[in-house]
């Protein structure tokens, strides 16, 4: 494991209570497969001055786990997904590989554009929904449950094919109303603690809230291995956790509100590189 001195400096600054700025990071202190952990906001009216990956806010110890795929506990799910890719399942007798061949070619860039508009269904689909659509429509196989090992393995594997590519979700055309809906969810105060996502991830990132060092709450690392979960988890699981912490009833995993929130979050973090599988505490 290599722990960069500069990463240590970031943590020291964090402990001193200053906002972390990406400019203190050295190029050597980067997650594997990624060349930058920040992005420039595409427009002046973007709510953030600088778009910073959640990686920037983690301790050198946690960062180190993502600097080497051999150390990355999330990589196990990528490997499981790779095995599933060519496993035949369902009444059509097909595997993903039967139609999509080599994922390294066919799936490159796909994960950076999720959720993606589906013209047939007239709605955006998340990676999970896209995969289940192929299973039921193209394979004659049963849907995988959102947080099942198979689904997490496949989403990790497919998204990993886009690692290092900038998040580039479609936000115009038919997607615009989903971005707007997601934005509304993002800024709505919920729960007994009466907070919105923005209260923590926009107004107070770079500060400690009790033992937790707040990031900007981006989605580029998902599916993400969380040390607290001791496994990899979906973005919607994270949404759920954040809502429960403020004593709100979470929206349904896979439901339209969370899909819209996912669309908005991708748009908000546009330009950040895909890190899946990221490691967080």
């Amino acid at each position: 494991m290599k722990v960069s001195i500069k990463a240590g400096l970031v943590a020291a600054i964090a402990f001193a209570g200053f906002a972390v700025t990406g400019s203190t990071l050295a190029d050597e202190g980067l997650p594997e497969g990624v060349t930058a952990v920040k992005a420039t906001p595409p427009s002046k009216d973007h709510p953030l001055d600088e778009i910073l990956s959640g990686w920037t806010f983690r301790t050198p110890e946690t960062q180190a786990l993502q600097q080497d795929d051999f150390e990355n506990p999330g990589y196990l799910w990528v490997e499981r997904g790779e095995a599933l890719w060519s496993e035949v399942d369902g009444s059509a007798g097909k595997a993903c590989a039967s139609c999509h061949n080599d994922a390294a070619d066919s799936m490159k860039g796909v994960g950076a554009e999720m959720p993606k508009w589906d013209a047939k269904l007239n709605r955006p689909l998340t990676m999970e929904q896209r995969i289940n659509n192929c299973r039921t429509e193209n394979m004659g196989a049963k849907e995988w449950k959102w947080e099942s090992t198979q689904m997490l393995s496949m989403t990790s594997y497919v998204r990993n094919q886009s690692r290092g590519m900038p998040v580039n979700v479609q936000a115009d055309g038919p997607m615009a109303s989903w971005v707007a809906k997601g934005k509304e969810v993002y800024y709505t105060r919920v729960g007994q603690l009466d907070m919105s996502c923005a209260n923590c991830h926009e107004a107070n990132y770079g500060k400690y809230i009790r033992a937790d060092f707040l990031s900007q709450g981006h989605s580029n690392g998902f599916p993400t291995y969380r040390l607290k979960w001791q496994k990899i988890g979906s973005l919607h699981r994270r949404f759920k956790g954040c809502m429960k912490n403020i004593r709100a009833t979470p929206y349904k995993v896979g439901g339209d509100e969370f899909v819209a929130l996912e669309v908005y979050l991708a748009q908000r973090g546009k330009g950040l590189q895909v890190e899946a599988p990221a490691v967080r505490n």
């Binding site: 919920v190 007994q192 603690l193 009466d194 209260n199 403020i246 004593r247 009833t249």
Partner: peptide, 24 residues
């Protein structure tokens, strides 16, 4: 402000069942 109001009933939408109708 991010600071919660500690003596308010259901200030935010979707308050979890367990906390509905209750102050913090």
């Amino acid at each position: 402000t991010i600071m919660p109001g500690f003596y308010r009933v259901d200030p935010g939408a979707r308050t979890a069942k367990k906390f509905k109708g209750k102050t913090i």
